[in-house]
Write a protein that binds this DNA or RNA. Structure first.
Lengths: 125, 125
DNA sequence: ACCAATGTACCAATGCGCCGATACATTTGA
DNA sequence: TCAAATGTATCGGCGCATTGGTACATTGGT
């Protein structure tokens, strides 16, 4: 698992961890059935408290990404439907947020689309 | 002034107020030179503390939207350059946020652009 | 000169999110 | 049966943002 936690970032560690693990699962870098590090192990590796890692695991389980059982560890679940619907839902939310800002600023749609295309194709963001 | 504060919203009251006043100025509903309600008056109307309204005014003054002087009140400033740079800055931020989400979800750029176009052109959002 | 209205500046209190630690329940394997 | 490893649940503390209040400075009018 390649995860990096920045303690000074604006987003709290548990959320950084949750986001990164979710991304690893979506991209297939964490295959279905793969076993994640134990809470305590990952906490040691990242220099976090066990409770912090536990929270990330808990929320990912609630979202349907993981399945954790005591004594057995935490593994990646196989429910592509949930992931797909969440993907589309998140894309919709992001697009709506962008549209809302554009509308509030009174910016031309073509300008907004050009700007979006620029940032979507720019590797630096 | 038509402003609505939701005490239960995730964003704190002072930021709701700041955003709404800024939008009123951008859209011209608050003309240049117009005098805003006094801090205490607006606080009474909205059921907020004077300090909360004062903070919104202060940040809007720092952003260049307003000019407040003791004994005289707070008026809308006339500096379109500031508004224009902020408009582009906000558009950039919004586009970057959208691009970041798209990238995290691993969604195709054309799909992302089509989705953005749909929500930009859809009157319902 | 005075007073009222206004904005400014500070400061204590409150609330909330996050973190770290501990105790508990469950499973596996010896 | 026991022990070790694991996830679960809960609790107190810490820090930060926000809030509300109070005192102060400034302006304009009387």
């Amino acid at each position: 698992m390649i995860v990096e936690i920045d303690p000074d970032a604006a987003t709290p560690p548990y959320e950084q961890l949750r986001t990164q693990i979710a991304a690893l699962i979506r991209t297939g870098k964490l295959a279905v059935g793969a076993r994640l590090p134990s809470i305590r192990q990952l906490a040691r590796d990242l220099g976090l408290a066990a409770g912090t890692v536990a929270r990330a695991y808990r929320e990912l389980e609630a979202a349907g990404y993981l399945r954790g059982r005591a004594g057995q560890g935490t593994v990646v679940r196989d429910i592509p439907a949930v992931l797909e619907t969440e993907r589309t839902a998140r894309l919709t939310d992001a697009a709506r947020a962008y549209a809302a800002t554009v509308r509030e600023l009174g910016i031309d749609i073509d300008v907004a689309l050009t700007t979006a295309r620029y940032h979507l194709t720019d590797p630096a963001g």
